[in-house]
Simulated scan of single mutants.
Amino acid sequence: MLFCVFIFYPFLKGIMISFTNWDGYSQASIWVGLDNYKRMFDDPNIGTVVKNTFIYGLGSTFFQNLIGLLYALLLNRSIKIRGLTRTIVYLPVVISPLIMGYIWYFIFQLHGGALNDIILPFRDEPINLLADPEKNVWIITFVNTYQYLGIAMFIYLAGLQSIPKDYYEAADLDGASQWGRFWHITLPMLAPSITINIVLNVIGGMKLFDVIVAMTNGGPGYASQSLSTMMYQMYFARQDAGYAASLGNLMFVLISVISLVSLLYLRRKEIVR
């Protein structure tokens, strides 16, 4: 019942709204059929927005898994301050994404930003990285990676600690190298953890919203917009709920297809213990 009320009904309602010209506030709306979808595919900015959405999703997934796995491998060893390091890496996760975005905005901003305060003595003028269309998307991806790699790290740590020690002892008897142990034992046995991390990271990255709003608000123009921020602006700033709903449906389809394909492919690669 709760699923129907809070998930299924809003989903169906969103599909219905996408076929109307509803402004999001009034009681009246007109059925326009597929006009919103035609408009969406004719929109000159939709290509940039979809590309950015993929960068946020796939870029964050790649870096979170790579760095998270490296941290997990390091912190799975018996080293000093291991617990403290784990806490420091995980700490950004508990911070609101909006607050995290503003923290990094104050680092990268043009006037008075911490980065420019550091480099200004060595150059004539400050740099405005957040206004650079070729860099701001990757900066946002970096911030999202920084905030959530702690989750990936702990999932990998759980996977590492569940690998039976007998496998490594047998590999040592066979004279396997460190790389051989990792490639033939650790990585295959981590397949379930890899599956969980990739699917979660793809979903989280492709629906990224708060950090974008805090750092660039999607600008300049549509240079750093994602489907979620464009949908928000169309609904609340332009009162174009029908078009916003069509963008939301496109985002749902893209996330569903990519996450489902990733899940099915990675599940086939997992080792049954």
Rank of each mutant, 00 (worst) to 15 (best):
A114G: 09
T20A: 02
L157T: 06
M16R: 13
I127W: 14
K13T: 05
Y56M: 15
G159E: 01
G113Y: 09
Y167H: 08
Q27W: 12
L75T: 10
R273W: 02
V143T: 13
V50C: 07
A170F: 05
N201P: 05
F19G: 06
N128W: 14
I196K: 07
G221N: 15
Q239T: 13
I139A: 11
Y9R: 00
L73T: 11
Q109T: 14
L58H: 07
L74S: 15
T145L: 14
W138V: 08
L173C: 10
V49N: 03
Y167A: 00
L173Y: 09
L70S: 14
R123D: 00
M40I: 10
Y265P: 03
M251G: 05
Y37C: 02
A72H: 04
I139N: 13
M1Y: 02
I67N: 07
N52Q: 07
V257D: 03
Q27G: 12
S96C: 15
T229E: 11
K269I: 03
P121M: 12
I196M: 10
S162W: 00
R267V: 05
E270Q: 14
N144I: 08
Q147D: 10
P220H: 15
I203T: 09
L91Q: 10
Y156G: 04
I79T: 12
R77I: 02
A241S: 10
Y105L: 07
E125S: 15
R82S: 14
I127S: 06
L115E: 05
G59N: 11
V211C: 08
A241P: 06
L173G: 05
L91P: 11
V199K: 12
D23Y: 01
W31Y: 15
V213Q: 14
Y25E: 00
P220L: 13
F154A: 03
D23V: 00
R238L: 10
